[in-house]
């Protein structure tokens, strides 16, 4: 009996999974497809996935006073070139890199010595510090945005890179994760390093850091994904200065000004912003999923 039902059952499972996959894919399909099509094709929902790529007239170019023949462009080129020209998209991407990288480096710089001390050193107040870490794990940083914003505004730091980075420099979660990892490192390793005359400071960076690479990589994935995609915090502290926009903020401003004809360029912008992480994820899938689950499982 099993022999007959198993293939059917297997097929049914795949049918459900494929249906789910199609629904999950819809917005990605729309995003990439719209970024390739002309406004007319978008509005009439024609042209399939790639659009006909018939040359279209750039209305703005005509308005400026150029003859129509000079303003013909292929939709895909129009969309992506507009995405870059209308807003300083590369600047946004660069800001995204600067901010996520600074956040991660500072988090490690502050969390690693603390995690080492909590797991391998004996000192007065250690239990207190550990309970403090456990308590702070309860506080979502997004929730206390208002008081942090007020504090930053009082010292005149809003609209700076510092305001984008400072609130995230302390990652209690990072401390906790690294401490758990360091607990598994044998004491002999550290004692041997001490025998060799290494200072505690260099033990952290030359002995502990290299052993902690897997955990650190998981934490890096967690941190970079969270801050590259974060929209709430930049929205709050960056109010006017376009030069400081992070990618999601840049896209949101684009949405604010866009009329119907700019949908193509907007989707091109969205594609450019979303793609880097997705590509890295596809390349290092196993690591990503392990990283996210490891950091998720606490």
């Amino acid at each position: 009996m099993m022999g007959q039902t198993a293939p059917m059952r297997e097929a049914a499972k795949h049918a459900i999974l494929i249906l789910g996959a199609l629904i999950v894919i819809i917005p990605f399909y729309v995003m990439v497809s719209y970024s390739l099509k002309s406004p007319r094709e978008i509005e009439s929902n024609t042209g399939g996935f790639f659009g006909a790529q018939a040359p279209m007239v750039d209305e703005y170019c005509v308005k400026v006073g150029n003859p129509k023949e000079d303003c013909l462009e292929t939709p895909v080129i129009f969309n992506y070139s507009q995405a870059i020209k209308k807003a300083p998209l590369f600047r946004y991407l660069l800001n995204g890199v600067i901010v996520t990288a600074s956040i991660f480096l500072l988090q490690v710089l502050i969390a690693l010595p603390c995690a080492y001390a909590l797991s391998k050193l004996r000192f007065w107040g250690r239990e207190f510090v550990f309970s403090l870490v456990m308590f702070c794990l309860l506080i979502p940083v997004h929730a206390i945005a208002l008081p942090i914003y007020i504090m930053l505004a009082k010292i005149g730091l809003t609209n700076t890179y510092a305001s984008l980075v400072i609130p995230w420099t302390i990652s209690v979660f990072g401390i906790f994760l690294m401490r758990q990892f360091f607990m598994t490192v044998p004491d002999d390793l550290i004692d041997a390093a001490r025998m060799d005359g290494m200072s505690e400071f260099s033990i952290v960076w030359k002995v502990m850091l290299p052993t902690a690479i897997p955990a650190l990589l998981a934490f890096a994935i967690f941190s970079v994904v969270a801050h590259w995609n974060d929209y709430f915090w930049p929205r709050i502290v960056i109010t006017g200065d376009r030069d400081l926009y992070t990618p999601p903020l840049g896209l949101r401003e684009f949405q604010g000004d866009a009329d119907g004809s700019m949908w193509g360029p907007m989707m091109a912008t969205a594609t450019i912003i979303v793609t880097p992480l997705l590509v890295v994820f596809m390349l290092a899938q196993r690591r990503f999923i392990e990283g996210i689950t490891l950091t998720g499982m606490k």
């Binding site: 999974l17 789910g20 996959a21 999950v24 894919i25 917005p27 990605f28 729309v30 995003m31 994904v225 590259w228 995609n229 929209y231 990618p247 999601p248 896209l251 949101r252 949405q255 907007m266 989707m267 969205a270 912003i273 979303v274 992480l277 997705l278 994820f281 596809m282 899938q285 990503f288 999923i289 996210i292």
Partner: peptide, 19 residues
């Protein structure tokens, strides 16, 4: 399937909300 289902977790929610 796992890869596909995980894509939305990696994509910037703001961008996907607009889409």
């Amino acid at each position: 399937y796992k890869t596909i289902y995980f894509l939305p977790v990696m994509a910037a929610l703001l961008a996907m909300a607009i889409v």
